[in-house]
Design a protein around this nucleic acid. Structure first.
Lengths: 204, 204
DNA sequence: GGCGGACTAGGGGATACCCTGAATCGTTTC
DNA sequence: GAAACGATTCAGGGTATCCCCTAGTCCGCC
């Protein structure tokens, strides 16, 4: 299942986009180009697969600003920053914003390809885990308000009786909500449920 | 409880160590100096508090190698790398190894102090959480072999009856081990136990 | 009017939890 | 050597809790 690994190229110069596209496609990679930061962010989703080649010097949003925006909603795509006007503070800033790598122009084709392959293989490694986390978050979104209230109680380790008291419901009703939310969350046991929720970072 | 925040200075030149000590102590910080990477790693523990100022160019272990060693057993101390022979690839390498910051010599005193304060405040923010995780790990270390086997079954969501079958023991025995390990782990409920274990990264 | 989802609830069997009691075994301590 | 301690094993009995099946109401939608 490595089909959907796309290299997203973000650069304002068409010549750079074209040469990168040619280079990457020459080794069989799928490429998607974006002329500026806004255009890329408009298409970007946290669950986007593949990796990103991001220029720093661009009109409009700079690459640093793009990194900041991506960091806000939990980036999972590795981003390789490349720029012709590199210095140490800039590289440090990009890396602190979670960039996967930082390449100075001019770069050799082989170096860039190697870094791209490294980013893609990291992405592949972490992909399954993140897909599972996304599924958990989506499942949580599908819970009803009552089910989330019950889940909150369950996560606090409260027995059904106390959850029932909190919500002024009968124990039997809590049991049903509990069974339903287990079903919806795809959990096979209480341990499974809590592990999924904790790992997905859900804290109601 | 900010008493034990120490700035660890690792540099082979005594003059640098002395001037950094003077600078840091002049603003009331506690300082501990180390003449090389080996000496520092010998004293370093993952739960060490404070932050580290690490030179790259040193005889013996380089700063990069020190970072690699620290990364192996889960560094939690923020490390500020500083070097007089900086270039972008070196900075990127250090940051990829999890350095908190990267400063070029010569640096201004105020810049260095600001970065140190930033590292210390990050350390303070994450400290309580990590202390709790450490306690969980230590508690797990104190479990007996049988208790860990039972815990493994509990984490898989298996009911006591099945755990008993797996280990060819009676349900009553499983109940005892389970109660004992809950006690030892300081867990107030099954949900609490699982959250602690998952967050501490324990996967038997 | 029917259909599905959310919410509510009871009965009964299985399971977990707590208390008391007890035996064996190995290590440490006095 | 005796005593103390912790780990491990098992049992009975009672209470609390959980889980599955069944079943009713309400509401929005086709």
């Amino acid at each position: 299942m490595t089909e959907s690994l796309v290299v997203h190229v973000v650069d304002d110069e068409a010549s750079v986009r074209d040469s990168l596209r040619w280079l990457l496609e020459s080794v069989g990679l799928r490429v998607c180009t974006h002329a500026d930061g806004e255009a890329f962010l408009a298409e970007y989703r946290p669950q986007t697969c593949g990796c990103v080649l991001l220029d720093i010097r661009m009109p409009g949003l700079s690459g640093i600003e793009v990194l900041e925006r991506m960091a806000q909603d939990g980036r999972r795509v590795p981003v390789i920053v490349f720029t012709g006007h590199a210095d140490v503070p800039l590289a440090v800033r990009a890396m602190r914003l979670g960039a996967f790598d930082f390449i100075e122009k001019p770069y050799s084709d082989s170096l860039l390809l190697e870094r791209v392959q490294r980013a893609l293989s990291m992405r592949r490694e972490t992909r399954d885990r993140e897909v599972a986390l996304e599924e958990t978050r989506r499942a949580y979104e599908r819970l009803s308000a009552r089910e989330r209230q019950v889940l909150a109680g369950v996560l606090q380790g409260r027995p059904n009786k106390l959850i029932a008291d909190d919500l002024s419901l009968s124990i039997k009703t809590i049991e049903v909500h509990r069974a339903n939310l287990m079903q919806k969350m795809g959990a096979h046991s209480l341990a499974d449920l809590i592990r999924r929720v904790v790992q997905a970072g859900i804290e109601p």
